[in-house]
Nucleic acid binder design. Sequence first.
DNA 1: TGCTTAAAGCCCAGATAATTGCTTTTACAA
DNA 2: TTGTAAAAGCAATTATCTGGGCTTTAAGCA
Lengths: 187, 187
Amino acid sequence: MSIHPALTRPGGRSSRVLNAIYASVGELVGEGADKITFPVIAERAGINPTTLYRRWGDVAELLEEVAVAALTREGESAPDTGSLASDLGEWATIIVRDITRPERTRYLRAMVATRSGILTHCAVTDARREQASEMVRRAADRGETTPTVQQILDHIIAPLYYHVVFALQVDEDHARRLVDDVLTMAR
Amino acid sequence: MSIHPALTRPGGRSSRVLNAIYASVGELVGEGADKITFPVIAERAGINPTTLYRRWGDVAELLEEVAVAALTREGESAPDTGSLASDLGEWATIIVRDITRPERTRYLRAMVATRSGILTHCAVTDARREQASEMVRRAADRGETTPTVQQILDHIIAPLYYHVVFALQVDEDHARRLVDDVLTMAR
DNA sequence: TGCTTAAAGCCCAGATAATTGCTTTTACAA
DNA sequence: TTGTAAAAGCAATTATCTGGGCTTTAAGCA
């Protein structure tokens, strides 16, 4: 399966090249390279820089494309432990572990830096909103009193991402405290 | 008054040049220029690029310095209206108005993008923490039940900044809702 | 007033990035 | 098969960045 957008001619070489490009960018971002330019990417991917200049006008565009691919993998479903409290606790922990990984942090920041990244941001945050709704729906079905989805996003997701992006302290204890705070609101 | 860091020889030319540089960067960031390089900055500031290469090794460093100067102006004190509820409401409104201004948003994003920006981030967030403590202290003196400073930061500041940085919807209604949520926690 | 010296300017060369016209490859379909 | 056109490669050119050596300016001080 290919992660990248539809091509008019998706098979063979184009696909191979595109995968090499994505991988190359991924590596560079992962290792925190400070000079991410088309020539550098091209060399590592073993392809010609011209290809990059033609397909994407600007490094930022490519970067964003790769970031969105990396940050919006499918298949992440919300925990289902039987109570909203522990669902949220587990969920928050997973998220903390995910976004504090250095390359994730870099992707997040790179994404923020690109000015055109509105679509990207939506893609990323929508996934979280889905998961939150899922958990809230299940809790409501069980008859639990729940906070709103918006409250969960505002008071768990936002602080976590905020801390990561602004290089502040985040850990699982903090995540748990956020969950407690949100649950307080539901009562 | 100069906003920039101490120089061994603060008067006259150096100062003039530095102000020109800061102004130049400010303009470029403000108008959303996509190519912010030393030569570009230098030309607009009417100075020599060499100066920039010598004083700052990297555009990111200069950008960060300007961002921190722009984002941490002194003299912003917390509202004092007589109750924590309205203090927070007013405070949140002020912050929303501030950070949704296009050039502010760009500064925030630029700051995030620089990898070395940890000091910057602290400077910015510390100011908010100060203000929050101030309001909480006054409320406590009046005998009000208050949320913790950390809760205020996590549940008002973080969501607001998060929304701005990730290009999500923010408005004063939203800010008010966040304040309500935080006050709920105090009870 | 002149001296001293940090800081800015100037010139310039080497390196790297961005562009462009043309050629070659090759996936897809008739 | 074979035709065809999209996509990648190549090579040559241009633009731009980067930074060093040296000169000039001017702030602060004796």
